[in-house]
Amino acid sequence: MTEPFLVARNIAKRFGALTALADVDLEIRSGEVLALLGDNGAGKSTFIKILAGAHPPSDGELVIEGSPVAFSSPKDAAASGIATIFQELALSENLSIAENVFLGRELKRSIFGIPFLKRKEMRQRVDGLLQELDAHISDPEAPVGSLSGGQRQAVAICRALNLNARLVIMDEPTAALAVAETRKVLALTRRLAARGCAVVLISHNISEVFEVADRIVVFRRGRKVAERLAAETNHEEVVSLITGAHPDVRALEKTN
């Protein structure tokens, strides 16, 4: 097994008296899809917000490729190669795909000191990314607002890849999608991992998770209660881990 991309050690998050997260140890590896499962309020969202730099942890440390990091903003996390694709995508509906993918870090050439867009290069780069992701979009010049939910996910993923993201966090990427679109986004998720990205997937849909994940981590009441290789567990066991009916979880919760 190769060196993990990111290691989280003893991560805890407290909001005043409320402990949202306690003692989370987790390794995230490149080329692997890691699914985070858990009931509402189990701490999944808090954990990815820490990874994304949106919340600082109250305790513990994050180590990226051997060196500890401290994020004070999502920008810091992005600079370390972590991209988060939120459910409500931060895309500009009135701009084209290429414009969205490059927004904020456009390719430009300077003519008389005025920065002009390298529109052709940006188009080609995005066409290449879309092709690589096998995402078929008939009119790349169309505004993103006219695309379907799945296509928008593809655009958001392109944007993450274009930022040279090493870890892509996907928060419920299929929650608002139709069945056919869901298939496509799941395929995209696999392709991201095949490209060498580490992928963290949050989902409520367990059969979906079994389709794409290599490893499954279950959160319950702010703790990581289980970690399984997807190939070595099954639907029933995961459900019992989430609900707390599994003997391991009972034993763990008794000792705490």
Binding site: P74, K75, A90, L91, S92, E93, N94, L95, E99, L103, G104, R105, E106, K108, I114, P115, F116, L117
Partner: peptide, 21 residues
């Protein structure tokens, strides 16, 4: 120019524009 893209992105949503850097 990038300025034009930024202007239109702000017109669409200032918050999203900020998130895009």
């Amino acid at each position: 120019t990038p300025y034009g893209l930024h202007l239109l992105a702000i017109g669409n949503s200032e918050e999203k524009a900020r998130l895009s850097g």
